[in-house]
Amino acid sequence: MKLSLKVWRQKDAKSKGAMVDYSLEGVEGDMSFLEMLDVLNEQLIDNGEEPVVFDHDCREGICGSCSLQINGEPHGPDRLVTTCQLHMRKFNDGDTIVIEPFRAKSFPVLKDLIVDRSAFDRIQQAGGYISVNTSGNTVDANATPIDKHAADEAMDAATCIGCGACVAACKNASAMLFTSAKVSQYALLPQGQVEATQRVQSMVRQMDLEGFGNCTNTGACEIECPKGISLENIARMNREYFSANLKG
């Protein structure tokens, strides 16, 4: 198929960017979206132009590197997939595709389609862990039985890949879904209880410091999340946060 692409090009963090038009032929339905961009880049390199840079690594939907806003939606029109798992069969011959970086003040563009998502790392560093010595001298793994339902829910929250689609989709660029997924994972497990108060307060404080917007419960994050992280996590974080503050 033949496609018209409108791609955000920006030389570096300081430069101003702009949309640039490209046309691309020979795209096949079996290609992933990133493989389509590979073809574009080969074409650009052949023409002596600089290829479009974008973050990507595992290309199997789990590392969370890829991060494109495609036709106005993070990771494109398909549901429950990352851009690397979005296949070109979801598009039609002759389509125009608009490709932009994830937009948020807290995700500054570094070049073209690459953004800096280290704000997410800093939120995790603020408290997204259980302070247990890594010596291995802990109790036996089966010493504390955990309700299967709680363990499964913790797992569902823990599947977040930190791609930032929630922020990109949210009209407020809020990072609540991301932050709440981590808070929830630990809140649901007995091991996470000891530091629960401190954790949710620190992580929320860091999230606010990073300049993300406020949640208005539109639910866009949940719909666009490639891992289907539920809004229930946000509600849980709210509960955790208020009970933490009531405890003082």
Binding site: K6, W8, M19, Q69, N71, G72, E73, P77, V98, E100, R103, A104, K105, S106, P108, V109, A169, K171, N172, A173, S174, G211, F212, G213, N214, T216, N217, T218, G219, A220, I223, E224
Partner: peptide, 29 residues
Amino acid sequence: LELQNRAARGVKYVSYKGSANASWVSRNM
């Protein structure tokens, strides 16, 4: 909050398909 939220986006999207993932009412409070 609305002012903060607008600032949190920074550069606007050229194409933003809000209708794909959220209702009109929730986006236009």
